[in-house]
Simulated assay, not measured.
Amino acid sequence: MKISKQKYSLLQLLKNKKYRYKTGLFILEGEKIIKDAVKFGADFLFVAYSQKFIKSQQEQEFLNHLKNKKIEIYEIDDADLEKVSELETAQGIIAVAKMFEFSKDDIINKLQKSKKATVIALDRISNPGNLGTIFRICDWFKVDAILISDMSVDIFNPKTLRATSGSVFNVLFLKDVTLKDELTKLKSIGFKIFSTAPTGKIDYHKVLTEDKIVLIFGNEAHGVDPELVRISDGTIKIKKFGQAESLNVAISAGIILSARAYSIYER
Rank of each mutant, 00 (worst) to 15 (best):
N64I: 06
N64K: 13
D106I: 08
V224F: 08
G166L: 02
K52H: 13
P226N: 02
D77L: 13
T196D: 01
F102T: 15
A121D: 03
L81A: 12
Y49D: 08
V229N: 02
S258A: 11
D78G: 13
E61A: 12
Q91D: 10
E31R: 15
F26L: 14
V249Q: 02
A95P: 11
P158R: 15
K113T: 11
T118F: 05
L10K: 10
G132Y: 09
E220T: 05
G132T: 13
D154L: 10
V84N: 11
L66W: 01
A163K: 00
K206E: 14
P226H: 02
L179E: 00
R260Y: 07
V207Q: 12
Q91V: 15
A121F: 04
A117W: 11
I76A: 06
I148M: 01
K239C: 03
P128D: 00
F135T: 07
F169H: 08
I193Y: 06
K17I: 09
A197N: 15
K142V: 09
D233L: 05
A95T: 10
G200M: 05
K175N: 12
F241K: 13
T160H: 07
I236Y: 00
L215F: 14
T196N: 00
D106Q: 10
K5M: 10
E82A: 11
I155D: 05
L63T: 09
L174Q: 00
K201A: 05
P128Q: 13
E245M: 05
D36M: 06
V171K: 02
S232R: 00
P226W: 04
R136C: 09
K142G: 11
K83Q: 14
S152K: 01
D80H: 12
D203P: 03
I137T: 08
K113P: 10
A117I: 04
Y204L: 13
P128R: 04
V207M: 06
D154H: 09
E88V: 13
P226M: 07
L122W: 00
E29C: 05
I125Y: 01
F241A: 14
N157E: 04
A163C: 08
L14N: 03
T178C: 07
L10W: 07
F102N: 04
K83I: 13
N219T: 02
N170H: 15
K22L: 09
R20E: 13
L45H: 09
G254S: 14
R162Q: 07
I251S: 13
V207F: 02
P198V: 10
Y49N: 08
Y19F: 11
D225A: 11
A250E: 07
K17N: 12
I213H: 02
D80C: 00
I231T: 09
M151V: 15
L247H: 00
N248P: 01
T118S: 15
L11R: 10
